[in-house]
Amino acid sequence: MINDSALLESRSLRDSVLDRTDVLDRVKALSLLPDGMHVTTAMVAAYFEVTVEVVRQLTKRHREELQANGMAVLRGADLRQFESDNVSLSTDSYPQARRSLTIYPRRAVLNVAMLLRDSDVARQVRTYLLDMEYLARTQPVENSPQPDAASLDDRIDQRITHILGKTVVPMFNALIETSGEHRRELIALRAGVQHIERRLQQHQARLRRLESPREDRPLAGVMAAMDAMSGREFEHHIATLLRRDGCTDVVVLGRHGDRGVDITALTSDGRRLVAQCKRFAPHLRITSPEVQKFVGSAKVLHASDVALFVATCRFTPDALSIAEQAGITVVHRGLLEKWAAGDMLRVLK
């Protein structure tokens, strides 16, 4: 298995995995500009949880490589046209009289992840990337799905059984036929190998029984299913749960003009509901700035009666405190699992 530091040192290795941009959303949802294709330097910094200056310095050191992967600096007429097409850039977060704007497509953002040393998010992207690459190189060539841990172990057991039955045992038979002095020892060794072969076959049979689907057992846990979703799929899944629990007029908003929320709806008793959905890796945390931003969108812009912040991870203590003070219902990973499994959220009753 290649250590993730190899990606930091080898451009050829980085180039070989740049098409796997889906890894970015598997680790943490990447917010894009309204064009659905690019992010700014500030958005790259927010994704990797570093300062803008860190990203600028990295861009300066690796400009040629990043430009080869789509990073561009817009100026003049190109900048004005881009700003016109992306109205959200003209907010207080950006200077109105900028002379240039650096934009990054997803491929360039993945490139940054493979260059950025001091970022836990970037490190997680590199680890996830190398795990996927390792599985891709070690699985058979035929078009089969990625193996899970159990099926991979089963394949290894079958291979060992094949080797024992087709090579090792016949070798012992040949040695026994030609040996006189050590015949008894060889017979004992052959018996031991045949015993191991039988135990492996029994083990394979048990695995197949355990892994076979049953009507009273789901094929996969509810959280495992949500962890495998894209950010957009996760939003639609939450909308389905809201409809299940009696909400009406449920709308999953597009990436443009959502004003800081992902879903709007009416509860069964007519209250206005908004929801923010974050499909993050389980080891990450929702922080207080993210909750504060949602409070403004939910309470000020949307004047909601019910505000849900739904995430596949946990929240920091500060984030939980702010949510409680502002009347935001936090649906963390544990509560989300119960909700998806059939329990109704108390705020919807």
Results as ranks from 00 to 15, higher is better:
152 L>N: 12
149 A>L: 08
154 D>W: 03
161 T>I: 01
135 L>C: 09
146 Q>S: 06
145 P>D: 10
131 D>F: 00
153 D>R: 11
151 S>D: 04
127 T>S: 14
129 L>I: 10
147 P>V: 07
154 D>Q: 09
141 V>A: 13
150 A>G: 01
161 T>A: 07
156 I>D: 12
138 T>A: 05
156 I>C: 05
160 I>A: 06
153 D>S: 14
147 P>W: 09
128 Y>L: 06
153 D>V: 04
157 D>Q: 06
143 N>Y: 04
145 P>Q: 12
140 P>Y: 01
133 E>G: 01
140 P>L: 00
135 L>P: 03
138 T>C: 02
152 L>C: 11
159 R>Y: 02
134 Y>T: 14
141 V>T: 12
138 T>I: 09
142 E>R: 07
156 I>Y: 13
134 Y>H: 15
162 H>V: 01
156 I>A: 09
149 A>V: 15
131 D>G: 10
150 A>W: 11
135 L>V: 14
150 A>C: 04
154 D>H: 09
133 E>C: 06
156 I>R: 15
152 L>H: 14
163 I>D: 13
131 D>I: 00
131 D>N: 10
131 D>Y: 12
140 P>F: 01
133 E>K: 11
149 A>I: 15
148 D>P: 09
153 D>E: 13
154 D>F: 02
138 T>S: 10
132 M>Y: 06
130 L>F: 04
130 L>Q: 05
136 A>T: 10
131 D>Q: 08
128 Y>S: 07
136 A>I: 05
143 N>T: 02
146 Q>R: 05
136 A>M: 08
160 I>W: 08
148 D>K: 13
136 A>N: 15
143 N>C: 00
163 I>V: 12
156 I>G: 02
152 L>E: 12
151 S>F: 03
152 L>A: 11
136 A>R: 15
142 E>T: 12
128 Y>F: 07
150 A>F: 02
146 Q>I: 01
145 P>E: 11
138 T>E: 10
141 V>D: 15
132 M>D: 11
154 D>C: 00
153 D>I: 02
135 L>Y: 11
137 R>A: 00
148 D>S: 09
131 D>T: 06
153 D>A: 07
132 M>E: 13
153 D>F: 12
154 D>Y: 00
146 Q>D: 02
151 S>N: 13
133 E>L: 12
